[in-house]
Design a protein around this nucleic acid. Structure first.
Length: 457
RNA sequence: CUGGGUGUGGCGCAGUUGGUAGCGUACUACGUUCGGGACGUAGGGGCCGGAAGUUCGAGUCUUCUCACCCCGACCA
């Protein structure tokens, strides 16, 4: 996947917002190697099992000119003593280091994060949602107690939910993964689940309570105040460039991308309508102070005064790109003291008086941010169903899609069978769930609460 | 790996019974345009995925090969 400049600018805005949230909650960044010795992997049994089938492996370190003189071939003499795995995630290499970093309760907690690329050799890729290489951040924390680790995992889940809802304008459900869907090597996996406009669910972020699994696998122990040797408790948590896919699939319409103002690389585009250089000069004279005033408020503004492209073309182009607000100004406006304001979320156009325009625009950006969230929230509400029996369940799934609340007997076997028959999986057991007795939608066995099913990406 | 399909200018495609390649779009220049993806004229750009073969002659026929796409197991 190539991420072109405009797309990468969105990722940078995401990174900046998330990075600040991490730092505000006491975390710091670090960086670990891309290549992980194969032996590290085998140390945590379920972790290997989870990732073994999708690893890229480095076996040699040198090329040589092909015997026939055309191109290059692998130099068999450069075979590595031990193969290196291109990280699919970094738990193993990080916990190998933590063993040396952690000796005493005074060394805890470790609250580290890294921004990195990872590789998972998937059978089928899907742009942004599932690419062989993707960019992400992975937090890896170490704690003295289970309670503290649990609090950390929950805290980071809340950070992700906050980011999704208040920055991406994407409503999410916070929940717990079932055993089948849990991260390889975790005791519990928390997640935020989002619903895309086509009715399919998307896991948008995860936060894991790793327990002492990695501490035991990598022998990471610390001395307590009481001088007792204990294993360390761990968490890990991550979000990736998949969020770009989520952003696109949550808000876009038939005219292209729709970006929430808080993540839009360009928040306001100004398009002058002119024929001659003199007219452009007059417009620029009027509009550049407004641009400055907007920028002083921290709003990113682009004044597109290219004379090689028609205004109509520019209108369409910035609609494709999802720019939240477009201002258009021509000589008619100059005479009337007006400006045309178009919002991307509703596609509405209005003529505003020029006075106080920067405050009106600032306010409109806030409205758009809120409107996008509400629109998505309404969509989620309208596409959330309750299935009381198996027929209902299949019907809803096949005709409507969306989130389906249904009773489940709590066994991996039932979940597996439902998946095989319908391709729907348990997205999560919502944290905000009311317990209610019922019968499993599939097996009819007793159940204590409904969980969320959906077909997912 | 299981089935099906496609490879021809940057992109999307056409190409008849074999006669050395064309359309749309994009690109360049000039002119007229410019308040919702303008128009005209003139240009530039392709050893037709690769190799071998049949033939006077292959995008087209034959054989081999490579790559990609869709369907299945996997997944942030």
């Amino acid at each position: 996947m190539i991420i072109k400049p405009y797309g990468y600018a969105i990722w940078e805005k995401m990174q900046a917002a998330l990075d600040k949230m991490f730092k505000d909650t006491g975390h710091y960044n670090m960086y670990f190697p891309l290549f992980i010795p194969k032996s590290f992997f085998s140390k945590e049994a379920s972790h290997v099992e989870g990732f073994a089938k999708e690893c890229a492996i480095v076996t040699h370190y040198r090329l040589k000119t092909s015997p026939d003189g055309k191109g290059v071939v692998v130099d068999e003499d450069s075979k590595l003593e031990e193969e290196l795995i291109v990280r699919p995630t970094s738990e193993t290499i990080i916990w190998d280091a933590y063993r040396n970093w952690i000796k005493s309760y005074r060394d805890l907690p470790i609250l580290a994060n890294q921004w990195a690329n990872v590789v998972r050799w998937e059978m089928r890729t899907r742009l942004f949602l599932r690419t062989t290489e993707f960019l992400w951040q992975e937090g890896h924390t170490a704690h003295a107690t289970e309670g503290e680790a649990m609090k950390e995992a929950e805290q980071m889940l809340n950070v992700y939910a906050n980011f999704a809802e208040n920055w991406m304008a994407m409503p999410v459900i916070k929940g717990l993964k079932s055993a089948n869907e849990r991260f390889a090597g975790a005791l519990e996996t928390y997640c935020i689940e989002a619903l895309m406009q086509d009715g399919k669910a998307l896991q948008a972020g995860t936060s894991h309570l790793l327990g002492q699994n990695f501490a035991k696998a990598f022998d990471v122990k610390y001395l307590t105040k009481e001088n007792k040797l204990e294993y360390v408790w761990a968490t890990s948590w991550g979000v990736s460039t998949r969020l770009m896919g989520a952003l696109i699939m949550t808000h876009s319409d038939n005219n292209g991308l729709v970006l929430p103002p808080k993540l839009a690389p360009i928040q306001v585009v100004i398009i002058p309508i002119f024929k001659t250089a003199e007219q452009l000069a007059l417009i620029a004279e009027k509009i550049l102070p407004i641009k400055k005033a907007l920028e002083a408020k921290g709003i990113s503004v682009k004044f597109d005064d290219r004379d090689t492209i028609t205004p109509g073309w520019k209108f369409s182009e910035y609609e494709f790109k999802g720019v939240p607000i477009r201002l258009a100004i021509g000589s008619r406006d100059l005479e009337n003291g007006t400006i045309e304001v178009a919002r991307r979320d509703t596609l509405e156009k209005a003529t505003y008086q020029f006075t106080d325009i920067e405050n009106k625009v600032e306010h409109l950006l806030e409205l758009i941010q809120i409107n996008l969230f509400q629109k998505a929230n309404t969509f989620n509400f309208n596409n959330t169903y309750h299935a009381e029996n198996w027929e209902d369940f299949k019907n809803i799934l096949n005709t409507k899609g969306g989130f389906i609340y249904a009773h489940w007997d709590g066994t991996p076997e039932t979940e597996q069978k439902i998946k095989e028959e319908t391709k729907a999986t348990i997205r999560c057991i919502p944290l905000k769930n009311h317990l209610e007795k019922g019968k499993c939608v599939y097996s009819g066995k007793p159940s204590t609460q409904k969980v969320i099913f959906a077909r997912a990406y």
